[in-house]
Amino acid sequence: MIPIGALIGIGFVAGLIIYLVYIKVPQKVKGLEKTEAINAILPGADCGACGKPGCFGYAQALAQDPGLITKTPCTLLQDPESLGNLEKALGITLDPSAMSKIALVHCNGNSETIYHYSGVATCKAAAQLLSGYRRCPYACLGLEDCLKVCPVDAIFIDPEKNLAVIDPEKCTGCGLCVAECPLNLIELVSADTKIAFLCNYKPLKSIPERERCEYACTHCRKCFKACEDEAIVWNKEKAVPEFIHEKCTRCGKCIEVCESNTLAEIKIEEKVLSHITKAPGEHCAVPKR
């Protein structure tokens, strides 16, 4: 009886002390309540996918900057109920579409090959020479730099056009490929994007626009007028048309008026999916002269 009694007694005293400390020690630190409340909603898996040390670190960062939830969303927190609780705790309204992103390659064309590239088979090396072996300096080179870093194998190489395409179904929006592309062709857009500019092309006066690629945006601005939602605007800094994905209602009118097929639906064709990637180096297109 004594050992059992002693153990229970000490356990009871220990519990009592913890309770007393919890009740009696004054809360000197303010502002922790919000962090605590957020921390209670988070999954508590401490997976680190958000880039913070554990869920508590993420809760701290969220308490300071609620906007972080859209920039680096918690990948484990998906059910509407917890998201609703988080909205209340943070005091903001969440746009569910802003939570998940997909990557998008801003190139849809097979620009003319201007020289035979036989160097190291990476886009980074090829982009050093005249911005790549294609006439358009913004053309995807298809040398698989992005494909190699993709953790979910969502990037494929179109065998005909020899450019990278991203499967929107598979893409998780991690953004690894964005940093990888030496020509900055890949952009993260919200996951429900259906229509996009598949060209990153700034016209230089010395070269007529259409000469570069049959898919190049000619800056005709017909889509500006066709769009009833004012979702297409001119980006003065980059000198390219810009698509505001939030405003787009996916009516498809802009696709109809686009003469150069720059505006297109984001989709991946069956033949691309079934295409087996070539051995490294075979992508370097031979000039068609």
């Binding site: 153990l7 000490i10 356990g11 220990a14 519990g15 002390i17 913890i18 400390v21 919890y22 020690v25 004054p26 809360q27 000197k28 630190v29 922790l32 401490d46 040390p53 554990g54 508590f56 670190g57 701290q60």
Partner: peptide, 27 residues
Amino acid sequence: LVIATLVQIIELFIKKTNAQLYFAFGI
């Protein structure tokens, strides 16, 4: 039993009195 209790008490105490230290220790 004693060690588990002590760690809990110390954590609770630091959390209530010195947030800086609490965040420094973290997990």
